[in-house]
Nucleic acid binder design. Structure first.
Lengths: 236, 236
DNA sequence: CTATTCATCTCGACC
DNA sequence: GGTCGAGGTGAATAG
């Protein structure tokens, strides 16, 4: 990994073209040749970058050559980075260099995560009676021709219920569930199937559309579900 | 901006919990207090991070104190970063420090972009007869109760056409256009309104759904449209 | 390999 | 301040 702090200008050409005027920035060149251009603010996203796989060629020139630049751009080092597959290009022109260091870091052992949608689905499946007393789980990831329904269950009366789970409930989730319901209701063994749209938070537009389609909305409390699960884990 | 290369371990707790075991990494502390943890590979996304607004507190201790750590974690410096609004926390424990430098970069002048969907919409609006001879533009961003239609036009016979533009044509774009058409066709001044789904590339599934809904698909060539536009720019 | 879906999404535009 | 849609989305997972 090479770290350079320098006054630089950057040009990118690919799906879009973008330009960064001359200013001091942090440049990172990773072991795989990928390049990040960071400013001293904003978010984790670089101002500009090149993803691997890519090739980096470096051109250096003397102060005299730089001063004589025809375009009036007195860079002393230029990086030409080209994406191996898409042909996207990133050109970085370094003017004044404030820092330049390199380190061997090796391969990272990687991140361990917990708490995403899969977990939410597992928790609700394990606590399906959270939705109503006497409810039973039929299957998680119930397969249909157009994709798997998150959860298929039966209510206390034995009627089928298809449940779509999202972390955030938005309009396309309702559309998705609608397509599943249309298909499931063609199966005489299941029909009538009603739908439940379950999410940690549901947007107003999604609620309106769901209501229009006769789909019930349920907001899930992740911590509460986890709490239930912890209690049950201790019981069994 | 502070740059630190160090053997470190990282723990994040927020929407999810995540852990990075001890390994050499690049740590960046930006002027706004945000922190990035990068490995020497992967993408432009850090392994872990904290977005602004957040507060950073640094705790240092001597090698003797570190060696006597009750948990057996001989860190010599610990960063506790807390998000001001959400309360998310990031804890970084530095063991061996390989580099530590700071720079004043100031505020970046920012990025200039070109070539995204807005541009595609503008180009097609300016060259609406690309879709058919004698076609005319009614309005870009034609407002409806459920959102703006990208382009409303009339064909050579004066019949209304609603156009949805995407960079990549996928199923939800067809759904979106379907909703617009349903609404627009309730307006007696416009009806009958037909739909055109225009994108640089359209997925087979989206084509099938569009055909089923009576929506025509058109693939757009960005460079060709830009070429047309350049020619016209020169003519007028 | 392609295709789908999630994301600590981020980011901008618009209301 | 929110809400919504796009992204050079990226990244993981299923088929």
């Amino acid at each position: 990994m090479r770290l350079v702090v320098a006054h630089c200008s950057v040009d990118y050409a690919g799906r879009l073209t973008a330009h960064l005027p001359l200013a001091p920035r942090l440049l990172i060149v990773k072991a795989d040749g990928s390049v990040l251009v960071h400013s001293d603010g904003g978010s984790y996203k670089p101002l500009n970058w090149m993803s691997p796989p890519c090739t980096l060629t470096v051109e250096r020139r003397s102060d005299e050559e730089a001063a004589a630049d025809a375009d009036g751009s007195p860079w002393i080092e230029q990086w030409q980075v080209t994406h191996t597959k898409t042909g996207d290009t990133l050109r970085v022109r370094l003017h004044e260099v404030l820092e330049d260091s390199s380190h061997e870091l090796g391969v990272d052992p990687g991140l361990q995560k917990d708490g995403v949608e899969a977990h939410l689905q597992a928790l609700l499946a394990q606590n399906i009676d959270h939705l109503g007393e006497g409810w039973t789980l039929v299957r998680r990831e119930y397969a249909t021709a157009i994709g798997p329904v998150d959860i298929l269950a039966r209510d206390a009366d034995g009627a089928s219920v298809a449940i779509e789970i999202k972390r955030r409930g938005e309009i396309d989730g309702v559309e998705q569930l609608t397509r599943y319901l249309e298909l499931l209701n063609r199966d005489p063994l299941l029909a009538p199937v009603r739908g439940i749209f379950a999410a940690q938070a549901i947007k107003p537009q999604a609620r309106v559309l769901a209501a229009d389609r006769g789909i019930d909305c349920v907001t899930l409390d992740y911590d509460a579900l986890r709490g239930i699960d912890d209690v049950e884990s201790r019981l069994f």
